[in-house]
Write a protein that binds this DNA or RNA. Structure first.
Lengths: 164, 164
DNA sequence: ATTAATAGTTACATTTATAAACTATTGTAT
DNA sequence: ATACAATAGTTTATAAATGTAACTATTAAT
């Protein structure tokens, strides 16, 4: 009685993503960024959004995002522009080079998605995608994980330094 | 024309796993291990397997695994026993305490899986799981990712130090 | 008896995660 | 108008995760 396949959903999802990004980075060795492809992909659809927007949508901490953007700027993939209407916000915009290379990134992502689904029927594919979204939103409503995201404990009761 | 939801499968899977482990670790705050729950879960089904086996099944690098096991030993969750029939292999076995606490871990995993699927029909659930497995095995056969796993480049053409 | 392969380890460098404290800016309530 | 809260982003520090290379010990293959 082998029960080989009793691996929890979350673990399976993590494993899948590891394989996925392995394949992806293999097919994107010619891009000037060696990582953060998912951010480029996201920017392709949301060019000019602020950093917090990327964080919220890709579940990345904002302190990590600072370095991600720094890296992408260093490689001339994006630029960081202050929003004149709300100077707290920094818009992240793909550069000319970034736009061009992001095309390749998007193609690579979509190629993998297509190959992955090559032997899955259209109907099953539809169900899969729908359930995947459902699971994610179910999880977001489960008891306080807090682990990610930035509006978290925020207890900071002290402070008030240069206020007086 | 918003295209909010065009996030690649691999990215969605990664995000799902982040939320998932956030919820999980929230519900397992009383366990003596603060992490590596998926390894405990795996050991519950495969108690006494060697380290490589865990690596292969959970897509974790073997050099990382050393530290994971060290950590779990330090917290008296597992022990590491040399296989007398092949002294290269180290069997990883749950301790008495590890067995007990792993019960809780398994319960927590299954509880989350249940909650996630609470509003998904049995049929859709079945399709989802089947496709998820299919996608993983599709990915494994895509062109060399190399990124993970241990039988990789292994080119090491030099070496031969103390051979002569 | 060499040589190759496997399981695991060590050491190192890089990347990522996490928390806390911070600046700058904007929103809100009195 | 002023005080306070909230938001976006940054910095710093620490810990953990990840990846690479070189290593030991052991077993398998020739």
């Amino acid at each position: 009685m082998k029960k080989e396949s009793t691996i929890p959903i979350g673990t399976k999802a993590l494993i899948l993503s590891k394989y996925y990004y392995g394949v992806l980075s293999k097919s994107l060795e010619n891009i000037d960024s060696e990582r953060y492809f998912s951010i480029l992909y996201f920017l392709n659809d949301n060019n000019g959004c602020n950093q917090q927007c990327i964080c919220n949508n890709l579940a990345i901490d904002k302190t990590a995002m600072v370095k991600v953007i720094d890296y992408l700027i260093k490689n001339d993939m994006v630029e960081r522009d202050i929003n004149p209407n709300d100077r707290r916000e920094h818009f992240i915009k793909l550069t000319k080079k970034g736009l061009k290379q992001t095309e390749e990134v998007v193609k690579a992502f979509k190629a993998i998605d297509n190959k992955m689904f090559s032997n899955v029927t259209k109907e099953d594919q539809e169900v899969f995608m729908r359930v995947l979204s459902q699971l994610s939103s179910n999880l977001k409503e489960l008891p306080a994980n807090d682990l990610f995201f930035n509006y978290k404990k925020t207890q900071r009761p002290s402070k008030k330094i240069n206020s007086k």
